[in-house]
Design a protein around this nucleic acid. Structure first.
Lengths: 177, 177
DNA sequence: GACCGTGATGACACTGCGTGCCACTTCTGC
DNA sequence: GCAGAAGTGGCACGCAGTGTCATCACGGTC
């Protein structure tokens, strides 16, 4: 992982071959593929582990708080982390947005967060008498919130003097207004 | 394109090789790559062309209408199209959600729509005195709306007896509520 | 100390994607 | 008829990812 991220930051994601990573880590190409499904997974695990506790943060919010507010607060921990390590976080975010080869991984990351948050959000929504059409409310809320987060992160990564928390506030209040 | 989609629907995206597509279309592999950047592009062009007119639809809405409502209405044309050709649209959506290899293409599609819609939405928002932080309002709104669309489409694809327009209404009203 | 399973490792071969290079054909204008 | 341009296909290459098999180190057993 360490060697891979060194190479990524120096050469970019696409330009780094599995051979290089394996060589730098002192193992064969074949062995690399025994531990990781591919280069993608190196990115994914980092993304996931960097924000595993969002759901707990959400669940810890008072039940009578508006869901949207709880989500905003649940993002706070990650936001603080990123602002604290801006020097590392910004280039990473830029890479995620510019390198086409990583796009699929970002989707996967989104899907994981979606799957984690959706049931937690669903619990907080008012019961709906089971009609014929499926209930998309929780999914829509979570997906939109994640969109706001991504949007804010993207803008923050590209504007050195901006504050992530401010941008996220702006994004999330605009949508519900 | 036609041959490719025949193969995709029969074997799935991943399982279809470029050789097969090229052979089915009566051309060499090399020639295929002269016209398309890869299998992805076959999917992407189909997605893009299937909804090129959303921006016009949005721009045609009255300027004093709430932006969120205008977006909902702008999606209408595509929604109607999909419901009319549900037999084709549903399997396509399922493929987009299940086949990992197409994920990157979906992101690209999203990005295109985002780039198209964002400036149009920005025009409709109240002016904001140019502060230090960048303006993410339009980006956040569009991204959230697209999330709602994707969410609704996903649910619709998986629930045969549901109506896409109903699901989209439910998704979009929930977020702003 | 010799023996044997077990698991980790690495070498090799193979499929598939995507690209660069070059030869060949066809079409077009002079 | 001919030169040039454009389209086409063959070949070779690098890279991702997978299956197969040999090798090697380890711990326990006799």
């Amino acid at each position: 992982m360490r060697q891979a991220w060194l190479l990524f930051s120096r050469q970019g994601f696409e330009a780094t071959t599995v051979d290089q990573i394996a060589a730098a880590a002192g193992m064969s190409r074949r062995t690399f593929f025994r531990y990781f499904t591919g280069k993608d997974e190196l990115v994914l695990t980092r993304l996931v582990e960097s924000g595993e506790s969002v759901v707990e943060a959400f669940r810890a919010r008072p039940a009578d708080e508006p869901v949207w507010t709880s989500l905003r607060r649940a993002f706070d921990e990650g936001v603080v982390q990123q602002e604290a390590h801006a020097a590392l976080a910004r280039p990473l975010l830029v890479m995620l947005r510019t390198e086409p080869g990583v796009r699929a991984t970002v989707v996967e990351w989104r899907r994981r967060w979606q799957d984690l948050l959706e049931p937690a959000v669903a619990e907080r929504l008012p019961r709906r008498r089971a009609g014929s059409s499926p209930d998309v409310r929780a999914a829509a809320i979570v997906a939109s919130a994640l969109s706001c987060l991504e949007t804010a992160q993207g803008a923050w990564a590209e504007h050195p003097h901006s504050r992530l928390s401010t941008l996220l506030d702006q994004a999330m209040t605009t949508v519900t207004a």
